[in-house]
Nucleic acid binder design. Structure first.
Length: 129
RNA sequence: UAGCAAGUAUGCUCUAUCGCUGCCCGCAAGGGGAGAGGAAAGUCCGAGCAACACAGAGCACCGUACGAGUUAACGGCUCGACGUCCGCAAGGGUGUAGUAGUGUAACAGAAAAUAACCGCCGUGGCGGGGCAGGGGCGGGAGCAAUCCUGCUCGUGCCUUAUUGUAAACGCUUCGGUAAGGGUGAAAAGGUGGGGUAAGAGCCCACCGCGGCGGCAGCAAUGUUCGCUGGCAGUACGCCUUACGGGUUGCAAGACCAUGUAUACCGACAAUUAAGGGUUGCUCGUCCAAUGUCGGGGGGUAGGUUGCUAGAGGCUGUGGGUGACCACAGUCGUAGAUAAAUGAUAGAGGCUCCACUUGUGGAGUACAGAACUCGGCUUAUAGUAUUUGCUAUUAA
RNA sequence: GGUCCGAUGGAUGAGUGGCUUAGUCACCGGUCUGCAAAACCGUCUACAGCGGUUCGAAUCCGCUUCGGACCU
């Protein structure tokens, strides 16, 4: 079985959870992303990681560009080898890691740049948690 | 060949790997198949559908406004009529209900509409002037009659002229005129002649405009036809007429689950009123204590449904100038909800640039469904194609 | 997704289709003062963009851009 799947259950959806993450979580910046994460004490939730991607309307007016960047970021996250390590850390501590990527620049970057940035963000999260 | 005008179609393709969201098969593992647009956009019109009272009447308000057609409907579309602007042309832009009533038109200008300020003409008056002739008073000459002259007061005629001397006009009353007046976006039909005190459609000719009839057209309207009328301001509102519109919108609405609180406060009625019922007003109608409405506090931030087969698309035949319509055949074509439709690699198209002429480099538009349709508007790299116009050359 | 509202100098904010688009604050210059402040006087800088209607548009009508509000 492949490890590179990303079903809907791993995505962050609840307004309450997202609000809590942005209010209480830690954040950092790796160009071109602002990221926020917050470890929650695990309840009944089966998943060990919850993730969301966002591109503000302020930086990209057109919906097709926002779509493109969100998809690119999602693919970069999905194919990242660091996910395995992060999941292990989460299971070890018995928490669910909520994580958000916010694309915050006006330029449209290639897949390569985005991959590097996502890689570094995941490394930082693993170290600081 | 070059430059245009009006349309129509299309708007990247394939392979591999890894994914995402529905659907189908399967106990499962897994397998199969589907998955953004011409504008999905703006939300500018029109409908379906839903709730409100199975939505009723009147007023208010809003929209539309050349004619005929098309359609479920429309402010759209098609064909046609007229005016005006742009273009050599093919064509394109833009406008068009009614005038019964009523209002406004800055600045400028005499005046912005019941015209009459200047000017022109007639008439009366006053002042001044000219001519003619008369009365009174004074002076001079003369014996006197009388003559000459100065002052003054009436009268008549004239006052810029065909005879005929004189030469100077000014103010004003009443009336007639609309030819002329540097304005203005817009000035009371135009040109010529007659006419007159001066002028004027006052009269005449031609041109323009209107009415009636005939003819053509379903009609708007047209008319090298006949007769006839001396003849219109322009623009924008209010208004009038005809037609249409109940209001709110899928975050409509329905069901399920979870949670809470009948917290509390205020208003209202015992039989005729008040209040309320998603509407601006009035009427009608409906609502009764476990009540209705308002204030205020608390909870949820989930699921199912609405939800995709529809005024559907495509092809052919027939009707129609056309929008469109009829019939037959055929196709199955997204349904998400922190929101899928993707990423990477390779190959190939197409366009541009460079030179070593078959290689390299760059680019490949506008843009992403959210209940669904019909239009409009706006954005859009290119490519293909139809018809028409103008110019040049050749036959 | 749907329903609406707005855009006027550097800031704020009036404006019946008609004169150079008011006013307040700020900036700048001057008067005053030994120097400033206050006061007084003066100057500068605007109708979001494009097109249409009209003789004439900040105003009326379309389209575009930007900003904002509401819905459960």
């Amino acid at each position: 079985m492949s490890n590179f799947t990303l079903p809907r259950s791993e995505r962050l959806k609840s307004l309450k959870v997202i609000r809590r993450m942005f209010v209480e979580g830690k954040s950092g910046f790796v160009y071109p992303f602002r990221y926020t994460y917050y470890p929650v004490q695990q309840g009944e939730a089966a998943e060990s990681i919850g993730v969301m991607f966002s591109v503000p309307k302020k930086f990209h007016k057109r919906a097709n560009k926002r779509n493109l960047l969100k998809r690119r970021t999602r693919e970069a996250y999905r194919l990242s080898p660091m996910r395995e390590r992060m999941r292990a850390i989460a299971e070890q501590r018995g928490v669910t890691i909520d994580l958000a990527f916010v694309y915050s620049t006006k330029e449209v970057h290639s897949y390569k740049t985005v991959t590097h940035a996502v890689q570094r963000i995941l490394e930082q999260v693993c170290e600081n948690i």
